[in-house]
Design a protein around this nucleic acid. Structure first.
Lengths: 326, 326
DNA sequence: ATGAAAGCGCTAACAG
DNA sequence: CTGTTAGCGCTTTCAT
């Protein structure tokens, strides 16, 4: 049974080093203010004692925590781990820790999470927030915030250009001779969903392709299965899903139903998950820069924390043509 | 430009409510100690002012944060998001936030992460830690900790019984007539890896199947691609990968090389990711209870925080036979 | 270059 | 039931 020993405080170090607590504090946070000799002794003793500054105490006085927070709607969607990896890469370079949180795809939980997270971090990245309008404005006011895939006036954001991706996808379908296409919609609250639908709409007008907007469906594998059934009922020959997870679900359902892909139904997704290249048939998809999105968002957040004004950055997307469109 | 307003403190609330700060504090943290009338007034004013207790100040005095931390080695492996979802589900019920962190698959970073995270949470779950020996002992001493897939005397752990899973996998291969099998090993530091190898060894002895242990390989898709090449050189007819991600990578590489699965090479993984059922050919795998693992780990952590003694829990696994073994 | 002292915002005895 | 008081561990003026 390990005895619960009292943690080492700055005072313990000061006593051992025969200096005041202020000197210890300075040796740790502003070394240039301490005589080299003293500093070395203090640091050495701190190290020997295993001294770890109490972050709560430090944060109480400085108002900073050294942490960043990232909120994503769904850890189960590999898109977000991709973003998180990028984010972590940027953050690590700056010596900050990142706290990831999952809002579970609910706007209510998202808001609650942000409120509880905000005071524990210096800055936040909200990925594809479900919260909108006045409440979103309220949330971003809590802390320096960068939005991913959601624009908001006066707030930093990193956007992925899914609209042109959607246009490219539909153009591809038109080129292949498809006349009727369904869109398996994601969450109505999602900016991305609106962009994708808008891109499909404008391109379908341009190419004279009929577009049926279905949904909204849960943006998950299961949602794609559901959506495939509806698309089947809608008499279309092509289906564009809100994301790859849905597209994979749709592929699965179509296989179960004996519907040949791409012969009887072409399928396109968004994201370009690892699995989209591996599944069968491999998935044509609009590739989104996941890691770069995470990196850019944190980079922007660090810039904001360093005093830069808010900015918006749009990242390009690209259609990856694979087997599911023939 | 939003003006940076000074945050509302407990004093602001106290002044407005014409009570002392203690009464406000109590109204929020121990409502039964305050007269109903007073409490209502205080809470109402706190709400109107948008008062949010400063967590640093609170934590400084109570020594608690209300947060849990979970460290995983690789967000890119869908196994961990699965665990995280389970963990979050358990935590949410108890009203605690969970901070997820990614150690990036490096023991050094893992240790650093734990050290920085420990003082900011009440308890930790370390998933498949790469750190071992004395250093792991040191880490778990920092905070109440539950280990996932790593046993340690005197420390709570939740283990998944991959050893019997491995035995079942090899038995299956023996049944199908395979004589020579390769194991694509994961990280040497991983307890799970040892268990799987041990299970394969004992079953291969029992069934008279030759076993070649290859690796270690990175426990990733790319690692599986590498491993498949080595397995091909080893003249085996079956391959068991450390995890599904590797198995998927192996499938991909075998397809590129024109090696038919399962006819010329059978493939088995561990985890049962969503994609393992969807890929082609679908993957035979030892299913691990990801969400349940996360749930159980947090449940155990909460029990520890509530004063229960450490305990070890072993969760069962199950072989899912699919197309990759014929 | 260093020390003394004040106080960050909050909770927890201890009185009343 | 409520107010007063005393810090939690640390950083930061302000002196020296």
């Amino acid at each position: 049974m390990p005895v619960t020993t009292r943690p080492v405080t700055i005072r313990d170090v000061a006593r051992q080093a025969q200096v005041s607590v202020s000197t210890v504090s300075r040796a740790l946070t502003a070394p240039e203010l301490v005589r080299a000799e003293t500093r070395v002794r203090v640091l050495e003793i701190a190290d020997r004692l295993g001294y770890q500054p109490n972050p709560a105490a430090r944060s109480l006085i400085t108002g900073r925590t050294g942490n960043l927070g990232i909120v994503v709607p769904d850890l189960g969607n590999p898109f977000y781990p991709g973003v998180m990896r990028g984010a972590q890469a940027s953050a690590r370079d700056s010596g900050r820790s990142v706290f990831f949180c999952d809002s579970g795809g609910s706007a209510r939980q998202e808001a609650a999470l942000v409120r509880s997270l905000a005071p524990q971090v210096d800055g936040l990245v909200l990925c594809s927030p479900l919260t909108g309008g006045a409440e979103l404005a309220e949330l971003v006011a809590l802390r320096t915030t960068v939005l991913l895939n959601r624009p908001l006036p006066g707030v930093s954001s990193v956007l992925m250009d899914s609209r042109s991706g959607a246009e490219a996808a539909l153009a591809r379908l038109a080129l292949l001779g498809h006349q009727r296409c369904a869109y398996l919609g994601g969450p109505d609250e999602s900016w991305t969903n609106g962009e994708r639908l808008a891109g499909l709409r404008s391109a379908s007008d341009e190419h004279g392709v009929g577009l049926r907007a279905l949904g909204p469906f849960p943006p998950s594998f299961a949602g794609g299965e559901l959506g495939a059934d509806e698309a089947l009922g809608a008499g279309v020959t092509a289906l564009v899903a809100y994301n790859d997870l849905m597209a994979l679900g749709a592929l699965q359902r179509l296989r179960e139903r004996g519907v040949a892909v791409p012969d009887r139904m072409a399928v396109i997704g968004f994201d370009d998950l690892l699995y989209s290249a591996v599944c069968h048939p491999s998935l044509t998809t609009v590739a989104l820069p996941m890691e770069e999105g995470g990196r850019a968002a944190v980079r922007e957040l660090l810039a904001r924390l360093a005093g830069e004004p808010p900015s918006t950055r749009v990242l390009p997307t690209a259609l990856r043509v694979r087997a599911s469109t023939g």
